[in-house]
Amino acid sequence: MSRIGVAFDKARADGRALLVGCMPAGFPTVEGSIAAMTAMVEAGVDVIEVEIPYSDPVMDGPVIQKASDIALAGGVRTADTMRVVEAVAATGAPVVTMTYWNPVERYGVDVFARDLASAGGTGLITPDLIPDEADEWLAASDAHGLDRTFLVSPSSTDARLAMTVGHCRGFVYATAVMGVTGARARTSDAAPTLVSRTRAVTDLPVGVGLGVGTGAQAGTVAGYADGVIVGSALVRCVLDASSEAEGLAALRTLSAELAEGVRNPVR
């Protein structure tokens, strides 16, 4: 079983959901992003999702796009993100990456998989790669023992849901709302339905993302999902801070709140 799978199992045994926190590599700087992710782990985030910045992130909302733009303007390269993965993996927390397909293809699919595995990454979440187009990635992730997380959506048909989870390894990412990333006042009613539809066709853990920003929301999602994925709300802590120290403090506070949330699932 993959390292992520082990972490999910442990959380499940503890009667809670796993907390996955997302941050773009290189935001606000390469070192700054390592510090941010390390602070998140220290404050209770179980798994770090390192987003590799891309110029045209169509599944991300304005907060993550802005952070990605800052990272890219600062000159972050795909190779730098491997360094971030390595540094954060050294904390002991499982590190999964997320990015759009073009940077992976440009890096070289097999080389990317090799470098990610050797940096200690567990796998890749692919927001704009569906299994239908993923032959090269299926082969490379097999060759280097990496997890594959494809997205499922409320609009996925039962046939597509089964096909998609059949190609996943590690965990499945359920997009809770029809829309892009970004904290919302309410999480979606569609999410519990999607999670139960997904569970009907796989034993893999199911993480829910898009829209979670508070401990209470994390508790709600933890009531029906195996993992709670938080991105924009964490990124905003850094984006809105007037200093690095202030950003890290805000990150720790929110991470702790979310960690508390996933430990108090609302069922």
């Binding site: 169509v58 599944m59 397909w101 927001p127 704009d128 790669l129 569906i130 239908d132 187009e133 494809f150 997205l151 499922v152 959506s153 409320p154 609009s155 996925s156 048909t157 597509r160 998609t164 997009t175 029809m178």
Partner: peptide
């Protein structure tokens, strides 16, 4: 060609 899109758009 092909489709490099979020799963959410496949049905549409």
């Amino acid at each position: 060609g092909g489709r490099f899109v979020p799963e959410a758009l496949v049905a549409a």
